[in-house]
Amino acid sequence: MVLHEQLHEMNPAMKFLVVVVSMLTLAWFFNPWTPALFFVGVVLFQFVCSLINWKLWLLLMIPFVITAFGYLWTTVLFAAEAGGTVIWTWKQFEVTDAQWTRALSLAFRVIAFSSISLLFALTTKPVTFVISLMQQFRLSPKLAYGIMVGYQFLPVVKEEFIQIRHAHRLRGVGVEKWWWQRIYGMRRLLIPLLAAAVRKAERAAFAMEARAFTGKPRTTFFKPVPVRIHDWILVFIFVMLLVISGLSGVLFMNN
C-alpha cells in the first residue's frame, strides 16, 4: 500500500478516537512547546502519509490562526495570577514570564487542535466515518442511519433555504441590516424550513421502514470497514507523537 494513502485509508472510527484522545491529552499541558511540537509533527505526518490539497489546508487554517491570535492577546491582557518575573510593563499593567508562557501555550493549543481536526476533516469520507462508527463502536443503526438521512438532505435543505429567501425578498423581508433584526428574522426563515423538515423526516423514516429497516444491529455489510494492522501502526505513531511532544515540552520548560 502506498504511503501517501495511509491516512486516507485509516479506519475512521480509530482515527476519530485518536483525535479525541490527542486533544484531551494536550489539554493537560500549559507549556508552549508541547502543542507547537505536536503541530509540527501532525503536519509532517500528514505531509508524508496523505495527499491533501495544501492550498485548501492553508485557507482553512486562516480563521484558526486568527482565533489563536485572539486567545494570545486575551490571555495576556486578562491573565490570571501566575507569579514569575515581570518581563513587560505599560503604565500599571504588568505581564510576567509565566503569564506570557501560558498565553503562548493556549495560542499554540488552538493551532495544534486545528491541525489534527483538519487532518481528520481532509482525509475522512463522511459516510465511511458513520458506517465505521457503527461497525467498530457499535453505534446504533437507528442513530447511524438517522444521521445519514440528515446528511443526504443537505442539498435539499440548502435549495429550500434559497427558495424561501427569494420568496421573502419579494415580500420585502429578509433584508435586515442589524444583527438583532437578523436573529429575530431567523424565526420567519426557520419555521417554513422546520415545517418542511418535519414532513421530510417522517417520509424518509417511512421509506426506510418500508425497506425493512428495523434498527436492529446488522449482521452483514456490503462494504465492511476493517481494522487492519496498518491502523494499529498509525495509532502507535500518533501515540508516540503525543508522548514525545509531551515529554520534550516539559523538559524544555524545566531548563
Binding site: Y145, F213, T219, F222
Partner: peptide, 26 residues
C-alpha cells in the same frame, strides 16, 4: 415524494442499505 425516500447519498449505497436490512449475505 421523490426527495424524501432515501437515506444514503448514492444509488449503490442506497441499494446496499436495502439489502443489509434483509440480512442478505455479503
Amino acid at each position: 415524494d421523490p426527495d424524501a425516500q432515501f437515506c444514503m447519498p448514492t444509488v449503490e449505497e442506497e441499494m446496499a442499505f436495502t439489502l443489509e436490512n434483509l440480512n442478505v449475505p455479503g
